[in-house]
């Protein structure tokens, strides 16, 4: 068993959830999302983010709008759709379950 594999599996498990959380708080632009996550000590590569965002958008979890900026071409600002909200809710429920379970298991010494 390789630890890095397991670690990356753990990360991958919660990535979507975290991204959706950030977007849920307000309209966000990809590099903003990266910044926020970095602030929360969850480093993610931009290159990981873009495909994820696109997939979520294609699955109608996210939507975006173009915002004109004065310095160059417009940017995409992502926000959650109702379907995304539902999805997020379920994920949150799952997370809570998991978190409780792990907590319970690791607390017992």
């Amino acid at each position: 068993m390789n630890i890095e594999n397991t670690q990356s599996q753990m990360r991958k498990g919660i990535l979507e959830f975290c991204i959706l959380s950030v977007i849920r708080r307000g309209e966000a632009y990809p590099s903003d999302i990266v910044e926020e996550m970095k602030g929360a000590n969850l480093n993610i590569l931009e290159g990981t983010l873009y495909p994820l965002l696109t997939r979520l958008k294609n699955a109608d979890m996210l939507t975006y709008r173009w915002v004109e900026s004065n310095s160059g071409p417009p940017r995409k600002y992502f926000s959650l759709t109702p379907k995304g909200e539902t999805f997020y809710g379920e994920l949150q429920a799952t997370w809570n379950e998991l978190s409780n379970a792990v907590h319970a298991l690791t607390q017992k010494i």
């Binding site: 599996q9 990535l15 379950e97």
Partner: peptide, 27 residues
């Protein structure tokens, strides 16, 4: 090669998480 979301041959993003929270991420 460093990306953490896997490329999906058929984009089934976000069907119900039937596999449970078993760590299938991305789409």
């Amino acid at each position: 090669e460093e990306f953490e979301g896997e490329p999906e041959p058929s984009a089934h993003a976000g069907a119900s998480g039937a596999a449970g929270g078993a760590g299938t991420t991305g789409a």
